[in-house]
């Protein structure tokens, strides 16, 4: 066997496809929350007065503050993507850092808000709550379930953004490992790595002593080149983060502003 065996490094990247997949995922998240909004709508129809009464107990100031915090974090993440697209990595990282910080502020606020409610004995199944009328009970149950589920999404979003922060900080590096188990077929032949059409390099002939062929290639963007792989990751994480923001845009008036 004297033939040349080609190991092709072919990378298929389709950023629009990646965004498409992300949007489909966002739609599933939207439907997930729809289930909760549906329940909210039906129970509100049934217990309108009780909902109004119960919502008086929520703190509009904290709610408004949190709304502004999330809106601002949405802005910073959008700006961070824009900065990375213009290859201002540092600015992008600062803005992303700000987003993560604002997410944390939101969660801390939420912690104190829930904490105060629980301190007053208002939590699902508590004696204090169970003595109230049914509409108020279901209002607070929904409040905890919906803001809890939303909070969980904030937490996940924060994690994802942090992960991407690290990726951008480390620059885009990708390691390809070509592992070839068919060594016996390669014996006596030359091996060539072909990238693109004809470019590439060759190594020496492989003899019987070779047991394994493994080639590692590390990809790194040249300086001045836009960091495409990280841009798409950040963009998709940004899309997720905006969705979290939109859910809150609806939760806020429905729970805080109906008194």
């Amino acid at each position: 066997m004297k033939s040349i065996h080609a190991l092709t490094v072919a990378e298929h990247r389709d950023f629009e496809g990646a965004r498409l997949g992300m949007w489909l995922f966002l739609i599933t998240e939207l439907i997930l929350f729809t289930g909760m909004f549906l329940l909210y709508a039906m129970y509100r129809l049934k217990y309108a007065a009780a909902f109004h009464k119960a919502s008086l107990e929520l703190d509009v100031v904290i709610g408004t503050m949190n709304t502004l915090v999330l809106l601002t974090s949405s802005l910073t993440v959008a700006l961070s993507i824009e900065a990375l697209k213009r290859n201002s990595r540092k600015l992008s990282l600062w803005l992303l850092g700000a987003t993560i910080f604002l997410a944390l502020v939101f969660l801390v606020n939420k912690y104190f808000e829930w904490g105060a409610k629980i301190h007053h004995g208002i939590y699902p199944g508590s004696q204090e709550l169970m003595q109230r009328n049914l509409g108020e009970v279901i209002y607070f149950n929904l409040y905890y379930a919906m803001t809890g589920l939303h909070g969980l999404h904030v937490l996940v979003g924060m994690g994802v953004l942090t992960w991407i922060f690290v990726l951008i900080a480390r620059k885009s590096r990708k390691k390809y490992v070509v592992h070839n188990p068919h060594v016996e077929q390669l014996v006596g032949s030359e091996i060539a790595i072909v990238k693109g059409d004809k470019e590439g390099w060759r190594v020496d002939k492989i003899d019987d002593n070779v047991e394994q062929v493994e080639i590692t290639i590390t990809y790194e963007p040249k300086s001045g080149e836009v960091d495409l792989p990280n841009i798409i990751k950040l963009e998709n994480a940004g899309l997720y983060w905006h969705l979290v923001d939109i859910i809150w845009i609806f939760l806020f008036p429905l729970f805080y502003l109906i008194s």
Partner: peptide, 23 residues
Amino acid sequence: HHSSNEVHPIGYGIFIFVWLGLV
């Protein structure tokens, strides 16, 4: 389909403007 893998910056200004509207 040809994948559109190019990068299109939009502009910082418009984002800040939208944020103001949201506030």
